[in-house]
Design a binder for these strands. Structure first.
Lengths: 246, 246
DNA sequence: GGTCTGATCTTGGTCAGACCAGTATTATGA
DNA sequence: TCATAATACTGGTCTGACCAAGATCAGACC
């Protein structure tokens, strides 16, 4: 009846999706709300239950809604995992995108560190310090070291107190950790990397503590650039004698 | 049979989704490929067709796949619209997120402009120049002016030749255009904004032409900051008497 | 032989009704 | 009154069916 009116032009899936979309966007469906049952939704919209399920499933993968078995469907707060999925799929099909995603990561972190300089509180500083310490402790371990590295960078983004930046950064986590790990494997190759990793992160930390956005940004950028340089060298030649390979 | 093996633990929807996900991520399903029919998929995976449809629909809203009526299901190149949807939903439920998304936008554009300084070609320069000219021409029109402004910024991101940055930036397009428009409405309020808009964009353009990443980044950042300041003033005090505002 | 045309197969789009397994609620009995 | 058991939900899934329209191929026509 009146429910149908809201989404008359479309049919089937589109109708249900549009109907729910409207409520979601209008705010009449807020996080925490429980939707009416699938059957009821079906009869009210004049479609079959499988169609309703399609729409609900669609909203589920978008992270808008959560279907709880034998409980009901509830609206959730938008979640990271969507972007995560998206980026994972996107990158799987375009491997050359990895460098590209790295650019996005740099973009986000550099902005985040600027915000962090303004907004970070004691707790953020402490988290950064812990991560920094961890990097020092695990400097010789590939896995733990990569993890520590990642934690440090994540701490920066968290300290920005920007949900969007955090979400975006987190969505690339899977890919980033991979890249971090492979970087970590270079530690054995280039002994100089140890000091690079430790000193660089410390300098970044200090810039944040000093609440100096420009310096923090610049230092972080340099950090990324040096990392790139190491990786490049590792590609061109193995270790030292680098002339033969190509 | 052998297909089932790939996704045994899960059941129903999860099974199908995992099965397809695996193929997608492994690369055995590439953009352009046509999937086998829903019925066949259902029998091969030992589930019913509605369940298969749920999975396909899920992939559809993720922009991974496209269901073509009476044709079949084909793998597509990941598309912006997903992120668009996500951000739209996310922001609808947390209006305070808008400022936050702006931060992400700044992050992306500032990184993009750095890349643009390195990678931009003649065509990119021309596009930027056209957008710049448009800004001058439409300085007194709210709608067209906002569009021109948006085009200029988009041209910057496009000139970065980074798909990821472009996608991310595009995904916020809806929100950004809104913000751009409201900014444009300030033009009438602050006559000084005209010169600000024109000169700022020209300076940005020049920095890109000069291929000076640092200057471009800094100029762009300043541009955003000034825009913020104008908006702030518009909020605090009306129009001219702005001495109180700071 | 080559091309056009129509029957048939296949595809997605949808529906109706049914069963299961647990949850939430309610009615019942102590 | 309270604890327990029956009942009415919920999501999760399956089966089988119908429709409309693109895809295909056989046969008719040029």
């Amino acid at each position: 009846m009146e429910l149908k009116r809201a989404a008359e032009g479309e049919k089937g899936f589109e109708k249900v999706f549009a109907f729910l979309r409207e409520r979601l966007l209008a705010g009449s469906l807020k996080p925490g709300d429980r939707l009416i049952s699938e059957r009821e939704l079906a009869t009210q919209l004049g479609v079959s239950r499988p169609i309703v399920r399609e729409a609900l499933r669609a909203l589920t993968v978008l992270g808008i809604v959560e279907i709880r078995d034998r409980i009901g469907t509830v609206v959730t707060r938008p979640d990271v995992s969507v972007l995560n999925d998206f980026f994972t799929f996107a990158l799987a099909q375009q491997a050359d995108m990895l460098d590209d995603v790295m650019q996005a990561r740099v973009a986000i972190e550099c902005q985040a560190i600027r915000l962090a300089c303004e907004r970070a509180n004691i707790a953020d500083f402490e988290r950064l310090q812990r991560a920094l310490a961890k990097i020092g402790e695990t400097i010789d371990e590939a896995d733990a070291g990569g993890m520590a590295d990642f934690e440090f960078h994540r701490a920066i983004v968290v300290a920005s107190h920007s949900e969007t930046l955090t979400v975006l950064h987190g969505s690339m986590a899977g890919l980033l950790t991979h890249s971090h790990r492979s970087r970590r494997e270079l530690v054995q190759a280039f002994p100089s990397m140890k000091t690079y990793l430790i000193d660089d992160h410390r300098r970044i930390f200090e810039a944040v503590i000093a609440r100096d956005p420009e310096r923090a940004d610049a230092t972080l950028r340099k950090h990324f650039a040096i990392g790139d340089e190491y990786r490049r060298r590792a590609l061109v030649g193995d270790m030292d004698k680098t002339s033969a390979s190509r």
